[in-house]
Design a binder for these strands. Structure first.
Lengths: 145, 145
DNA sequence: CTGTATGCAAAATCTTTGCAGCCTG
DNA sequence: CAGGCTGCAAAGATTTTGCATACAG
């Protein structure tokens, strides 16, 4: 199993919480999960786990490069699988849906801008906030800033 | 005074805390301030103010469109003056310095991307994280994710 | 005067840490 | 069997809310 290898290569012991958490992300049903989301999902599976463990595991996964930690405007962190391919986010403020995209042109300009200012870029986050087609149809108003 | 008008137009009474907070941002010495930054600055000015008031005022200013509320990777919110001109951020993870930029090409692509997906865009945030020239010279390593 | 705004303290969130015992390798 | 891992509870950090009093208009 590929999950096992990923854990071992990070020097992490294979435990029930780690396995289940990683599986949750790899299933891909919901790509962006907060610590609390994960907690609730595991409890629903009758897995006896503490929130503290979730936070510790998510942090370790992020440090190991297995997951990314994102901060949308929500005030709390959400995690998503690192699938190699970098991408940016399009967040619907109506229903919370998160869409992903990549744009080569934008990536290039970012590097140019950083270079012009003498910055060595090691990460970037582009998030677009809007109302998706369904929410527009339902006339759900843009969330206030 | 222009500050007074801005407050009155938002239907907010002109009080010492509001005046001082708005002045802090308009002075522009530091463009991005957290609630706690503002609190400390006001205390240093011998102004008797509570943290709760700062949060309330910052929130009201953000709702009135006077300030923007940003979430960089720090886990807490920072505010900056709404100077009309939209811009994005280049954050140094070494010293915390925040640089600003605008790129017409990126703006255009963002709108196209949103349109392609049926989103009505009402906001976006692009933050580049890197190491600035000075920190690179001092060999300050990129902060871990 | 009237309704807002404020300071203080308590509560609510989200996240991290300490600790004794459990489990993987 | 040793060291890492876990759950629980407590502590931290940031932000919000309740309430009586103070102040702007």
């Amino acid at each position: 199993m590929d999950i096992l290898r990923e854990l071992r290569e990070s020097g992490l012991k294979v435990t029930i919480p780690r396995l289940r958490i990683l599986q949750l992300f790899q299933e891909g049903t919901i790509k962006h999960l907060s610590a609390d989301d994960v907690y609730k999902l595991l409890l629903a599976e009758k897995i006896d786990v503490g929130l503290a463990t979730i936070y510790r595991v998510l942090m370790q996964f992020a440090e190991a490069g297995i997951l990314f930690r994102r901060h949308f405007e929500s005030g709390h962190a959400v995690f998503e699988l690192n699938e190699g391919q970098h991408h940016d986010h399009l967040v619907c403020t109506g229903c919370g849906k998160v869409d992903e995209f990549v744009d080569e042109g934008i990536e290039l300009r970012q590097n140019e801008i950083a270079a012009e200012r003498g910055f060595v870029l090691h990460e970037h986050a582009l998030s677009l906030y809007g109302t998706c087609a369904e929410c527009t149809a339902k006339k759900i108003p843009p969330r206030r800033a």
